[in-house]
Design a protein around this nucleic acid. Structure first.
Length: 509
RNA sequence: GCUCCGGUAGUCUAGUCCGGUUAAGGAUGAAGGCCUCUCGAGCCUUCGACCCGGGUUCAAAUCCCGGCCGGAGCACCA
């Protein structure tokens, strides 16, 4: 068999690497350019994973360019904050999505002004001073507001007034002309630039230097062309923005890039709302942005979810325009496949109780491999000595149901016992032999344990934020922060701290 | 309400463009078994889906029409 069909015996790859579908219209451009354009008003979370990973992967797949562009043009409602520029860069790097060039829109306002003025001059945009309700009424009736009819000179004059403070916040807005009879009222004569009183709400990067700020469709629309973006990959909430921006492109004689709109991404049982995450952190509901209950990249990182697992899952999902609800199980399964070969094994007993074994007169040494498939990595060993004929061990509280009197158990790599009783919070048992074979024959459950005399008090932080006290084995002294381990019969966890107390963040089973 | 988009197992996905090669494939999950001195990994088995109704056709998940359901947008947010 081995000789005839060696390939049949080879382990075949579990999951075939699913290639991304070809990028539409990739051959239309000399070089593919994609971008990720976050607002630095919060940390990144799984909701952005699609935009980041798809944009980056396609750029790489086509030997193109991936841009990072901070869209920090709202100093008021979605106010950017200095810390988030850096946290976003950090998250991207962690995800393995390094960008080729970086842009910050708040540094580019002068550029946007040039195009605003040009459109005003050419009668393709106008400065509207109507009350919002008045404008809305006119526009929904497919009628021009009074401002629209004014000559370019008037608008140029109003534009100057916007820039030099002649208009206050909310008193004037630049609108891009569109087809007034467009079926969707939302695209008709959309607003392009507005006034923000940065004296009151200064921008973290440019302070109060500017008072006229572009809106999303204007700055993003201009930049996509100006920076040579060929493929815009974003959520389907931007579908109507494409309609709006096409008018801008038409006015300027540009071709609109290829736009791909994917569906919204949810994760079961988790909120992915930036504003709610921010609020929760500010109010102390969450312990910072890496609180294990959150699906921020910071939190996933802290729990030991590997970026490759996220990437694999996102690539699997692709770019369909349907909304999807991801399951943690799928993510965990990807992560486990990555972790299992690398994570060394240790014992951790959660909320333990004492087990006293009598009848074992001599000292024992239990030897466990650091990894069952990799004996070359070495072993951990427990020295276990009886004290006046009794061996004292700690056993995980989860295993309490196994301790019914008369039950047989095997202590892994140590010996077999029979439970006598459980009283006063501790289990009493008697030594019945060391034979593993015997235990196997009797289908005796195998459990883990710790010497009561030597162990390390530890803390386990669970995904729901709860904390479980417990003890880990002495060998855990050598662990470093960030290391991934598998706590046998418990699950995978990341070492989050070694002092003052050894602390694990639970990843998954 | 208006303007769009979409509906394959619990979840994710392949197939839909160019109708038959598939008794609708894979992953995840659940249940069971084998193996393993972990409840992990590995191996095997089982469970489970084309939103509904018409039409076209020898043949429809795939094409057409209608309905139903779900989602997004309708900001001087991004």
């Amino acid at each position: 068999m081995e000789e005839t069909w060696p390939e049949l015996l080879e382990a075949k790859p579990k999951v075939e690497e699913r290639a991304l579908p070809p990028l539409p219209e990739a051959d239309k451009y000399p070089q593919v350019v994609t971008r990720f354009s976050p607002n630095p008003d919060c940390v990144l979370h799984m909701g952005s994973a699609r935009a980041i990973i798809l944009s980056w992967s396609y750029a790489r797949m086509y030997h193109g360019v991936f841009l990072l562009r901070f869209e920090d043009t709202d100093p008021h409602l979605k106010k950017p904050s200095l810390e988030f520029y850096d946290s976003i860069r950090e998250d991207l790097l962690w995800l393995g999505c390094k960008w080729d060039r970086e842009y910050i829109q708040s540094q580019r306002l002068g550029l946007y002004y040039i195009y605003a003025k040009k459109l005003l001059e050419e009668g393709k945009a106008y400065v509207c001073t109507c009350q919002p309700e008045v404008f809305r009424r006119k526009i929904s009736a497919r009628q021009p507001c009074p401002c629209r009819e004014q000559p370019p000179e008037t608008h140029l004059h109003r534009w100057e007034k916007m820039l030099d403070g002649g208009f206050g916040e909310g008193e004037a807005v630049v609108r891009v002309k569109t087809d007034l009879s467009h079926p969707n009222p939302a695209v008709r004569d959309w607003p392009a630039l507005r006034i923000v009183d940065t004296g009151k709400t200064p921008h973290p990067l440019v302070g109060d230097r500017y008072r006229v700020w572009p809106l999303y469709n204007f700055s993003s629309g201009l930049d996509d062309h100006l920076l040579g973006v060929t493929h815009v990959i974003r959520g389907k909430e931007h579908l109507t923005n494409e309609q709006r921006q096409r008018y801008l492109y038409h006015h300027l004689g540009w071709d609109y890039p290829t736009a791909i709109h994917y569906g919204r991404l949810k994760i079961e049982g988790v909120l992915l709302s930036k504003s709610k995450i921010k609020l929760g952190v500010e109010q102390g509901v969450y312990e910072g942005y890496s609180d294990p209950r959150l699906a921020t990249f910071a939190a996933l990182r802290r729990r030991g979810i590997k970026p490759q697992a996220i990437e694999e899952m996102i690539l699997e999902i692709g770019l369909k325009p349907v909304d999807i609800t991801l399951s943690w199980d799928t993510l965990y399964s990807h992560n486990r496949r990555i972790l299992d070969p690398v994570a060394n094994r240790y014992f951790f007993v959660a909320q333990p109780f004492l087990l006293e074994v009598s009848g074992a007169e001599k000292p024992f040494k239990a030897v466990h491999p650091l990894h069952p498939e990799h004996p070359e990595r070495g072993f951990r060993a427990f020295e276990i000595k009886p004290d006046k004929g009794v061996i004292r061990l700690l056993v995980s509280g989860n295993d309490r149901p196994l301790f019914t009197s008369g039950a047989y158990l095997r202590l892994k790599n140590l010996f077999n016992i029979q439970v006598k009783a459980f009283q006063e919070g501790k289990a009493l048992a008697s030594f019945t032999g060391t034979s593993h074979e015997e235990a196997q024959k009797g289908h005796v459950p195998i459990i883990h344990y710790l010497p009561a005399a030597s162990n390390i008090p530890s803390l386990m932080v669970m995904p729901d934020g709860s904390r479980i006290e417990g003890f880990s084995e002495e060998a855990c002294k050598g662990l470093k922060v960030g290391e991934m381990v598998q706590l046998e019969r418990w699950g995978f966890a990341r070492v989050d701290a070694v002092a003052p107390q050894l602390t694990f963040f639970y990843a998954h089973k």
